[in-house]
């Protein structure tokens, strides 16, 4: 029996909502819950069905209200975006690994910290308030559930095994929110650092990458614009992915 499912939460809600509110573009947001990255196949299915749904709806709109493109606030995200197809609208996505790069302002800045601060587990305002990140309370909650399901002795063993990776990390990287941080979120990250024996590191967040995602321009070195009748293919280089022609008629998809 799996642990209780995480609640629905969107970890970039504040940043994206702010940027959308300030944008000259008319942006209609759709939200998916965080933590689908743990099940990349499921995230892929969710994203594809969302693209399909938006494209279908677009056909029914009056011409002046139609969308120009679909913008995904997703990087590779465990390779979930690989294989996504578009039929009638361009799909734009940032060339990065995941939301950490988006919140740090660029894929390069994420790589810089990945090298400079190895063993860093990232915390953000969104993850703390909506993302159920690792912390003492979550540990205790999971443990109590294991005791109920498998008994005290097995619970101890399971917790040790499933949380062993926490001890492999050395740093808690708190990415500040350029829109402002709540003191309780910073204190939360500091407490996690104390509880897990990590060094607390405060890294300034940067909205530049998310802002370009919402407003453009979508320079080719930072964004992929996947034209209609194309499919996203991995290339396992720094540019992460490219698009290839895709014909929905012949593939039967």
């Amino acid at each position: 029996m799996p642990l209780l499912p995480d609640p629905i939460h969107m970890v970039m809600a504040r940043q994206l909502s702010y940027l959308i509110s300030q944008s000259r573009n008319i942006v209609r947001p759709w939200w998916l819950r965080q933590s689908y990255h743990n099940t990349p196949d499921l995230l892929h299915t969710q994203l594809q069905s969302l693209i399909d749904q938006i494209e279908q709806e677009n056909e029914t709109l009056v011409p002046t209200e139609r969308f120009d493109q679909i913008v995904l606030a997703y990087g590779l995200c465990s390779n979930s975006v690989i294989g996504l197809c578009s039929r009638s609208l361009p799909v734009v996505l940032p060339r990065c690994d995941d939301c950490i790069a988006l919140l740090l302002g660029s894929a390069e800045r994420y790589q810089h910290f990945f090298q400079k601060l190895p063993g860093t587990y990232w915390y953000t305002t969104g993850r703390i308030e909506q993302g159920n990140p690792p912390c003492r309370a979550r540990y205790e909650r999971d443990r109590a559930q294991y005791v109920e399901l498998y008994g005290e002795e097995n619970a101890e063993y399971l917790m040790e095994h499933q949380n062993h990776w926490l001890h492999n990390y050395q740093n808690c990287g708190y990415i500040t929110c350029p829109l402002g941080d709540l003191p309780e979120h910073i204190e939360f990250a500091k407490q996690v650092s104390r509880d897990f024996g990590w060094t607390y590191q405060e890294i300034p967040g940067d909205l530049a990458y998310l802002s370009r995602l919402i407003n453009g321009p979508w320079e080719d070195d930072q964004f992929l614009v996947c034209p209609p009748h194309s499919k996203i293919e991995a290339d396992y280089t720094a540019q992460k992915f490219h698009s290839i022609p895709w014909n929905p008629e012949t593939t039967g998809a």
Partner: peptide
């Protein structure tokens, strides 16, 4: 079955 069941069985 899921990861916890496999872990306790393996143990």
């Amino acid at each position: 079955v899921f990861v916890p069941e496999v872990l306790i069985a393996a143990r």
